[in-house]
């Protein structure tokens, strides 16, 4: 009991000292003098804390920050402009394409957009396909509906990858994989909560043993088993269950494509698989919080 009290006491004294050192610029010696009864125990702790605080006092490179600030302000200006023009928060670069989609619908009675539905990265109508997806996204309002829509887009890219693999087009596969990464990442950000209350943070480790899941070995995906993250759990919310199901569907498509792909295509498909699994892992974790 006495030991607990002493433990609590040093925790409080340590925090008081850190507050003084971090916020008021006091020295370790000042703090030791203020708490002589704890000086012996405090000294190594405060010395370590001060060294850590000093090491953490790093700043971003000024030239990087200037470029980053410019890019960010430009992105904000784009968003603000889109809002004013009422294009469902769609970037200006999309506005022209979407206008094209609308004209195409009127002129062709929708047949052009339908034809674009089968287009692939690198083809003329692919921009029309992406623009029509943006129009649909603009008409999707709830957070969970948006999340589901982005998952559908990711799986649409999977369909493209399967076709591109059949045709041996590595560049197209990489482009589609990058879009999958972006779509699944957006689901994660959409579902980020403002506090971690009630649950510890997800593991952060640089040790491969800590982060290598059961479905990987020596940096390679074990393709004979479906990752556990795609299995339904009883406590899953509707959104999580739906993401698991969609994730499983696309995963099976990618694996099937991988198995029959020629050797020179496999590295690109492996990269797509990694992005796909990690993207869904993050998205499902975030949606389940």
């Amino acid at each position: 009991m006495h030991e607990n009290k002493a433990e609590n006491s040093i925790e409080i004294v340590l925090d008081n000292c850190l507050e003084e050192i971090i916020c008021s610029g006091r020295t370790v010696e000042d703090c030791l003098a203020a708490y002589p009864e704890h000086a012996e125990e405090l000294k190594p702790l405060l010395t370590t804390a001060k060294a850590s605080y000093k090491a953490a006092s790093i700043s971003p490179d000024e030239s990087f920050k200037a470029r980053a600030r410019y890019e960010f302000n430009s992105a904000v200006a784009d968003m603000a402009q889109n809002r004013k023009t009422g294009w469902f928060n769609i970037r200006p670069v999309w506005a022209q394409a979407i206008a094209g989609v609308l004209i195409a619908v009127v002129v062709s009675g929708g047949s052009l957009v339908a034809a674009a539905g089968n287009s692939l990265p690198g083809q003329t109508l692919y921009g029309v396909k992406l623009a029509s997806e943006q129009v649909r996204m603009g008409l999707t309002f709830s957070q969970s509906a948006k999340s589901e829509f982005y998952a559908d887009l990711a799986n649409r890219r999977v369909d493209e990858i399967v076709t591109l693999a059949d045709r041996g087009q590595v560049d197209g596969i990489m482009e589609a994989a990058s879009r999958i990464d972006d779509n699944l990442d957006t689901i994660t950000v959409l579902n980020v909560k403002s506090t971690t209350t009630g649950s510890p943070p997800a593991p952060v480790s640089q040790n491969p043993e800590d982060v290598t899941p059961s479905y990987m070995e020596d940096g390679q995906i074990l393709r004979n088993e479906i990752p556990e993250l795609f299995s339904l759990n009883e406590e899953d919310t509707n959104l999580v269950a739906s993401l698991r199901q969609k994730g499983r569907d696309g995963y099976l498509e990618l694996i099937s494509s991988f198995e029959k792909a020629p050797e020179h295509i496999k590295p690109a498909l492996e990269e797509a698989l990694v992005l796909y699994i990690i993207g869904y892992e993050n998205a499902i974790y975030s949606a389940g919080q």
């Binding site: 990442d185 994660t188 943070p201 997800a202 593991p203 952060v204 982060v211 940096g219 990694v274 993050n282």
Partner: peptide, 15 residues
């Protein structure tokens, strides 16, 4: 935090 988790996952799991 999510960005850091993602960074380590991608770094360690790439072929």
């Amino acid at each position: 935090h999510n960005q850091v988790v993602d960074y380590f996952r991608k770094k360690n799991r790439r072929p």
